[in-house]
């Protein structure tokens, strides 16, 4: 992996984001209905509609609209004003993004910490009851959609007065860390359960293959301890595909977060996006979509870098 490679990848990300801005812009422009009518309601007078259109620059040709939108982002970091909230988009989206990031990163870290040892254990105990139970459990997690898992968790763990966890809401960690922790458990578990199976199954299949490889056999025939054979020889070589899956799962996570935030009343990007879609708050929709695309592109790059660190053969390719 060279600097040239990194620069090429960064340029590719920028290209992807440019294409996304076009797509986002085109879709919102093509959508039936008129933003001004949406805002003012169907009984608005033509004069009022025309005035609002002028205020929103909707009367200008599309390329002028696109130009003023993109130049605002690039020159001032300004995504415009929310149509409904009368707040800058950056302020609306920024806070929500932070809240969502807290939830997503917690879920992702928990999945990584739990799924990798679980997959490795299943591979080591392949064909035994342990393997079967891990497999069953993780398939169940994947098979159940978020709203079902969330409902079950709510019924059993967040019953009024008796449940150990709150049924929803959000407390910022810098205000009350304990409150934050108790609020994040259920949404993070709901998100994580789905990904657990993806990652643990991937680790299991790769680890099984690595365990039957010639070099693991060679390591055992050198008389190395089983602990060293697994931790030094087998496990590091089983992780690359899991990292690739985790990075692909980030896309999945971004979708899941919309549902989970809605259920647990978590004030994040998902809720903002839902609100913006319902109210046709175009600048907000555009900003959120662009942000999600950016996260996805960057996480893919990060995963490629991690894979290269795990496998020296990739570094020079």
């Amino acid at each position: 992996m060279s600097w040239g490679y990194l620069i090429r990848r960064l340029l590719a990300i920028i290209l992807v984001l440019v294409i996304v801005t076009f797509a986002v812009f085109a879709i919102t422009a093509i959508l039936p209905g008129n933003a001004a009518i949406m805002i003012l309601g169907e009984y608005a007078t033509p004069d009022a509609v025309a005035a609002l259109q002028k205020q929103l620059h909707l009367d200008q040709p599309w390329y002028m609209q696109y130009y003023s939108w993109v130049s605002g982002i690039l020159l001032h970091g300004d995504f415009g004003m929310s149509l409904r909230l009368s707040l800058p988009v950056t302020q609306v989206v920024g806070e929500a993004f932070l809240n969502s990031a807290l939830l997503a990163v917690t879920a992702l870290v928990a999945v990584t910490i739990i799924a990798i040892p679980l997959g490795a254990l299943a591979a080591l105990k392949r064909g035994t009851a342990v393997d079967l139970i891990i497999g069953l459990f993780s398939y169940l997690g994947t098979a159940l959609p978020e709203f079902v898992t969330a409902t079950l968790l709510l019924v059993f763990l967040a019953a009024p007065n008796t449940g150990p966890f709150p049924a929803g809401g959000f407390v910022a960690p810098w205000e009350d860390l304990g409150g934050f922790a108790s609020h994040i458990v259920l949404p993070a578990v709901t998100l994580g359960l789905i990904l657990l199976a993806h990652v643990s199954r991937q680790v299991r299949s790769e680890m099984s293959e690595v365990l039957s490889s010639d070099y693991v056999r060679a390591a055992r025939l050198k008389g190395l301890s089983e602990r060293r054979v697994i931790r030094r020889h087998a496990l590091p070589n089983s992780l690359a595909p899991a990292v690739a899956v985790i990075s692909l799962d980030i896309g999945y996570l971004l979708g899941g977060i919309i549902v989970v935030e809605e259920i647990f009343a978590w004030p994040g990007l998902g809720r903002v996006l839902m609100y913006a879609l319902e109210n046709r708050d175009l600048p907000v929709i555009q900003a959120v979509t662009l942000l999600l695309a950016g996260i996805y592109a960057v996480s893919n790059l990060v995963s490629d870098i991690v894979i290269a660190l795990l496998d020296p053969r990739v570094r020079y390719a």
Partner: peptide, 8 residues
């Protein structure tokens, strides 16, 4: 080529 660990 297969009996040496490729990442060590």
């Amino acid at each position: 080529s297969t009996s040496l660990n490729p990442t060590i």
